[in-house]
């Protein structure tokens, strides 16, 4: 049997909202350590890797490792029925072909239960090496979302140039061109508003902005986003999921023909 309970069910709903545009169905790997998921988009350009550690749940029980094929589209629809302060329990009974989502209101007066049929999915797994990136930009996730949205107006691609002083996002297309430059914060009251850059080597990489905008669907999970970059290496765009894990998106850069 598998059972995991989250007092703040909305966190789980935000995780699903963060994933479902990039991947519509995925296999969840459940073990004693927690829940993990790895999936690529259909064009094999981007990949998402999710980790939710067991100690982040109020209660967590996983008697044996399980691979659960789940339609994220359907799960998202079910989770929309959850109240914003509801507690969420995810359960898979032994020998069952369904996942049960139970939602309980804070005053314990309302209790809803939904079952979703599990799917048999072919899952492909990529070995992502630990990488020492040349540059890690940390910035407010709302700012990153806004920049990606704005850049998409100008063109299909965004070039991210990072130096020790700042990071520049630029796009050009038929209508024109533009760029936004952010300097490293020197003095901020709140850490979540800061832009910080760890840099070993300056980088300039170009990415499809459409994918960056899909990654930004996970921005409500975290005040800050980490963008890890090296030349000729996929971008890693990371949002923390509270203290319990993270969503990491990987995106292959565009290359010169």
């Amino acid at each position: 049997m598998f059972e995991a309970r989250l007092a703040q069910g909305s966190i789980f709903a935000k995780v699903i909202e963060g994933l479902r545009e990039l991947v519509t169905e995925a296999t969840w790997e459940c073990s004693g350590n927690g829940i993990t998921l790895q999936a690529m988009d259909s064009s094999h350009v981007a990949l998402v890797s999710l980790v939710l550690r067991s100690d982040g749940f109020e209660t967590y029980r996983c008697d044996r490792n399980m691979s659960l094929g789940i339609s994220l589209t359907s799960m998202s629809k079910v989770l929309k029925m959850m109240g914003k302060d509801d507690t969420l329990t995810i359960r898979v009974n032994d020998d069952s072909d369904a996942i049960v989502l139970s939602m309980e209101s804070q005053n314990q007066e309302e209790f809803a239960e939904y079952e979703l049929r599990l799917m048999d999915l072919d899952s492909e797994h990529l070995g992502i090496p630990d990488t020492d990136y040349s540059c890690v930009v940390k910035m407010p996730s709302t700012k990153f979302s806004r920049i990606c949205r704005d850049m998409a107006i100008l063109g299909d691609s965004v070039t991210i140039c990072s130096t020790k002083d700042g990071v520049k996002f630029g796009a050009k297309g038929d209508v024109g061109q533009g760029s936004i430059r952010l300097n490293q914060s020197t003095n901020v009251d709140k850490e979540e508003d800061a832009v910080s850059i760890e840099l070993r080597e300056a980088v300039a990489l170009t990415f499809a902005v459409r994918y960056l905008n899909m990654f930004c669907k996970a921005a409500p999970l975290s005040n800050q986003v980490n963008l890890s970059m090296s030349e000729d290496t996929p971008l890693m765009c990371e949002f923390k999921v509270g203290d319990m894990g993270h969503i990491r998106f990987y995106l292959a850069p565009k290359i010169e023909d």
Binding site: H44, L126, G127, S157, A252, D257
Partner: peptide, 14 residues
């Protein structure tokens, strides 16, 4: 011209 590369080129499939 720029073209979109795929992740296969960077990460080997297990």
């Amino acid at each position: 011209r720029l073209r979109q590369s795929q992740l296969w080129m960077y990460y080997k499939r297990i």
